[in-house]
């Protein structure tokens, strides 16, 4: 057993443990932090596979951006997680039995499988081999179709998010600068002819 294998098992155990904690920890902030740990250990596994670019992107994008945003949301929304968990223990036995059956079946199928031993070692890369460059080359040649479609998927997500959240409510006190700039005198000022006698003037003001 060499160092790589030991590291692989260590990182895998860490991923499994933190993934388990994500769904079992009571505090949602802890759950989010365990998810960060899961991302870190998965990035470690990618490092072992020599996919350095992907490993770094995972840490930068998911840990650095997505999870931080997620944490903000969790902290800002005051969600009562205890309330969400109601009924969990009532259905637990049922779910546990189903899960156990599924696990046993999976072990039955895969336990008997004669998986080929990983004898073939991948050929070592040349010294000037660039992971990032290769990835870019593949994305823009072999996988250009799905790459473009992934962009469409993001566009759909954007359109959907705006359609679902943008709402022009009446009566909000927000400022519209362009409207403020474009305003004309006639929009704001109204000249009222007031008769000299006090009685008529009073009715005019009431109407105005």
């Amino acid at each position: 057993m060499n160092l790589e294998t030991i590291l692989f098992y260590l990182l895998s155990l860490m991923t499994l443990f933190s993934a388990g904690k994500v769904i079992t920890s009571r505090n949602p902030v802890h759950a989010a932090l365990y998810l960060v740990l899961a991302f870190f250990s998965t990035a470690g596994i990618w490092m072992l596979l020599e996919a350095e670019f992907l490993a770094l992107t995972l840490v930068l994008v998911y840990v650095g951006a997505v999870m931080v945003l997620f944490l903000f949301v969790v902290m800002m929304l005051d969600i009562n997680f205890e309330q969400l968990r109601q009924g969990f223990w009532r259905w637990f036995p049922f779910a546990a039995v189903l899960g156990a059956i599924l696990a046993v079946e999976m072990i039955e199928v895969l336990g008997n499988a004669q998986l080929p031993a990983a004898t073939a070692q991948a050929a070592p890369h040349a010294a000037n081999y660039s992971n990032t460059k290769e990835l870019g080359r593949l994305i823009y040649t072999d996988y250009v179709y799905v790459f473009e479609l992934a962009a469409v998927l993001l566009l759909v997500a954007m359109v959907a998010a705006i359609a679902l959240t943008l709402r022009h409510r009446q009566g909000t006190k927000k400022q519209d600068q362009s409207e403020q700039v474009r305003v004309r005198r006639n929009d704001r000022v109204r000249l009222v002819k007031i008769a000299a006698s006090g009685k008529v003037a009073a009715t005019e003001i009431k109407q105005g």
Binding site: Y145, V146, A150, L153, V156, V159, A160, A163
Partner: peptide, 24 residues
Amino acid sequence: HFMSMYVGLEIMSLSLYAMVALQR
């Protein structure tokens, strides 16, 4: 290709999820 199948499925599903929720 399984990848284009999956991406196509997601484009369709994502649009449909949003359409169901349009009546906010």
